[in-house]
Simulated assay, not measured.
Amino acid sequence: MPIAAGFIAGAIMYLSLFMLYINDVMNGFIFIGLLLIFCFFTVILFFFLRKRKRQTRFFTSALSVLLILLAFDFQLLEYESATYTATGYMEPIDLLEDSGLYLLPVRIEPVAFIEDKEWLMEGFEAQNIDIYHIEPITNQDRYVSKNRWLAAFAGFTRDGMTEMEENLTSYGYSGLAFAEDFFELDNLKGNSAGLALGLKAMYDRGELQNAVPIGITGAIERDGTVSAVGGIREKLLTSEAEGFSHVILPELNFAEAHAAKQNESLDVEIHGVRDIEHAADVIRELNGSR
């Protein structure tokens, strides 16, 4: 019973601090610092009550919980300097010359230490960097980023580019010579180019013809299903700026894309697709060769 009570007490102490942290009441340094203080006082109480067996078990179990959670969250300190994420224009990529099938990357600029948003925007303008949006980083964002890093470090997840390449291979698009350099690019991350690469493979094999400039985004699964991606608003703005008449994107992102199109008063036509074959049919229809 004392052991269970100690576990519960340790969990309650942690959760009381965690709720304050995740709701931006305190920063990561205070959160980790208070966890350390809780651990310190638990050790002190354990020392003074060490001759009482029941209390010893209680404080040992409480301390165990606090130390485990402290170790789990200590990496948060690495993310404390992050203040904003800026997203902006990045030139679309046509890996096959004149295919008209464009990958839609998004420029992502992590910002650290800078709190003044206006000064930050002026800095981007001075460097001729076209920024669409600046989003403040919350403690929830930091916590999610930390957990993703831990999952990747432990080998539970793969990076987006590796996953995308493996899914394309599983679907039958392996050894894409035109994409070799793409997978080596350091400034691109994520899996949102999967659909475009699959369609380019079809184009490269002569299975698909295209004469219409089309922006394409979407992650591809092993069975060819197209899954949702981020940065939809930015990708539509880039497509509009480049003069693309159409954008093909995941059906799961269609509502978001439609709202962005209306809010930004864009002319580009959007097409939501379920899988890669559906996307290929859309391209054939746009080219009048269905």
Rank of each mutant, 00 (worst) to 15 (best):
K235G: 04
L249V: 01
R54A: 13
L70H: 06
T217F: 06
T42I: 13
Q140W: 09
S245C: 12
R107N: 09
L120M: 03
F182M: 09
R205Q: 15
E269P: 00
M19C: 12
A62W: 05
I131K: 12
R222F: 13
P110R: 01
A112D: 06
A179P: 11
F38L: 15
F40H: 00
K235H: 02
V43K: 06
T85H: 13
D281H: 13
Y21K: 09
I131H: 12
L252R: 15
L17V: 09
A62Y: 03
E277N: 02
A71L: 10
F254W: 13
E269C: 04
S81C: 07
S245D: 15
L185F: 07
D181F: 07
L168I: 04
D181Q: 14
A179D: 11
L63Y: 09
D24C: 05
L188M: 05
A193E: 00
D73W: 08
L103P: 01
T169L: 11
A82G: 08
M90G: 04
T87S: 15
Y21P: 08
S192E: 04
T217K: 07
Y84I: 06
L15V: 10
A280Y: 10
H258V: 10
E234W: 02
F183D: 08
N253Q: 10
E163Q: 12
M121A: 03
D73G: 00
G243H: 04
D116P: 04
G272M: 07
M1T: 10
Q127L: 14
I93S: 01
F41K: 02
L104Q: 02
E91H: 01
E234V: 00
A177P: 07
F59C: 00
I216L: 04
E251K: 10
I93A: 01
T56D: 01
T85K: 15
S61R: 06
R205L: 13
Q75V: 04
A177G: 07
A11Y: 12
K200A: 12
S64D: 00
L168Q: 05
I3V: 15
Y79T: 02
G190E: 12
E234K: 00
I276H: 03
Q140M: 12
I12F: 14
L101N: 06
A112R: 13
V226Y: 07
S99F: 07
I216H: 01
L45N: 15
T217H: 07
L96P: 02
Y132S: 08
Y132Q: 05
I44P: 06
S265H: 15
N147Y: 11
L20A: 10
D204I: 03
M121D: 14
G155N: 12
I108S: 11
I232G: 01
R274Q: 12
N263S: 13
I108N: 09
T157R: 14
D73A: 02
I216C: 03
S192T: 02
E269Q: 14
